[in-house]
Design a protein around this nucleic acid. Structure first.
Lengths: 228, 228
DNA sequence: TAAGTTATGATAGTATTACTATTATATTTG
DNA sequence: CAAATATAATAGTAATACTATCATAACTTA
């Protein structure tokens, strides 16, 4: 429950930003508008000069909040995963049955993000699209090990571990709980991407499909007499 | 078998390059050295000026082969997937039993690339590392739909479909053969990445682990009385 | 082998990016 | 109200991602 409360404000590693964007109106405008812009034009075309112009502020002012756009992406994706973690903990904490708990968690983590506005200035639907299209770019870098040591990916790692633990609770004998958890999280983003751009490479076309696919995938792997 | 022979030279969509790098010594040097450089410094730091200098040629000469570094990445990754496809077709074409065939295919597709030098100037081990670290960047772009229409991803798509077909041959009733195939291919790259940078998010640490993990994952999903 | 063609190399130039630095002007706070 | 702080405006730099031009080298073929 303490973790839960801690997650409500979505505590992001302070090294990711120079000045907490949640602490000022300008900061929130930066986050708000960057989500719209990255979503509309893609991460590579997006830059701080354009963002400054769009919010009728200035490039130099944006740089006082984030060192560069890579750090801003780390901020946005950390926020997203923190939000998913918050929903996951909230939605599963009173479920006793391990299988039900895991089922609920999988549904939450694999389904497309619907409209939500607990955090006024953040558009979670667009942010989830950004995560689908850009998340890999935040870690597929030469700096990944340094940044990992700095703790830039803790929220995501904690989420994978929560899923992994739920998997192990259902079947303590299963050999690959972490791999399965990371496959579900990353694979879910990938299936959503394929659905939008490479329809022939996926069978997830209807709403609900990624959830059904991954739920089957996970439960077929657990408590299976064929294993071990 | 015709497909096989066609694949030996690894036929890459001609729109990806301006001038076929296989047709000249300089072209092959560009490909050869770009693999070493991208592997050493990462795709973002790599550029044609540095490459030109390294091969004691010139930036402008490199631009006569590839429009930009994105196209070069498309070329390298297409080559890689074409090479994997070639190995896959070669290694499985005389296996009759569908399960054995699929097993062989999964092993080939999920295991780390060992030393190979059928194609002298291409270092397949380093190229496979590039694919692990950079492949997503080739399609996670705003231009993906246009480039897909141009046929820049045909080889990869054909490979997913081959795997998908093998899955359906083992179990025609399985609902998600394409999703499972794409999950295996993409997921395998991801597990290899995690092994190197986020060890706590995977259980694949030993050589052979990704193969065992994905083989179990696939076969637990097929011919399972729990389904349907 | 001379003449034409094509490939490569060298150099220069442009627009954009990703910043840093400086100074001016608001705005907040004590 | 003064002092501190935040923001805005402007300028500047090094690097990137090219394009264009011209010279020269190498190959081709008549």
């Amino acid at each position: 429950m303490d973790k839960l409360l801690q997650s409500v404000k979505i505590g992001i590693n302070e090294k990711i930003y120079i000045k907490d964007p949640e602490s000022t109106t300008l900061g929130r405008r930066i986050v708000e508008e960057s989500i719209l812009m990255i979503n509309a034009m893609g991460f590579e075309s997006f830059n701080f000069k354009k963002l400054g112009a769009k919010i009728k502020s200035n490039e130099s002012s944006v740089y006082r909040y984030f060192e560069n756009k890579h750090k801003l992406l780390l901020y946005l994706t950390s926020w997203y995963w923190g939000w998913v973690e918050y929903k996951l903990v909230f939605a599963t904490h009173n479920i006793q049955d391990p299988e039900e708990k895991l089922k609920k968690a999988l549904a939450l983590v694999t389904s497309a993000t619907k409209y939500d506005s607990d955090f006024s200035h953040i558009n979670e639907v667009l942010l989830s699209k950004i995560v689908i299209n850009e998340y890999s770019k935040s870690y597929l870098t030469k700096e990944v090990d340094t940044e990992n040591k700095e703790g830039y990916f803790v929220i995501y790692k904690r989420l994978v571990n929560r899923l992994s633990t739920m998997i192990s609770t259902v079947d303590a004998a299963y050999t690959y709980p972490s791999s399965l958890a990371s496959t579900v999280l990353e694979g879910s983003l990938h299936q959503h991407f394929l659905k939008d751009h490479f329809a022939s490479l996926t069978d997830c076309h209807e709403k609900g499909d990624p959830t059904n696919y991954f739920t089957e995938l996970v439960f077929n792997s657990l408590n299976n007499k064929l294993n071990g």
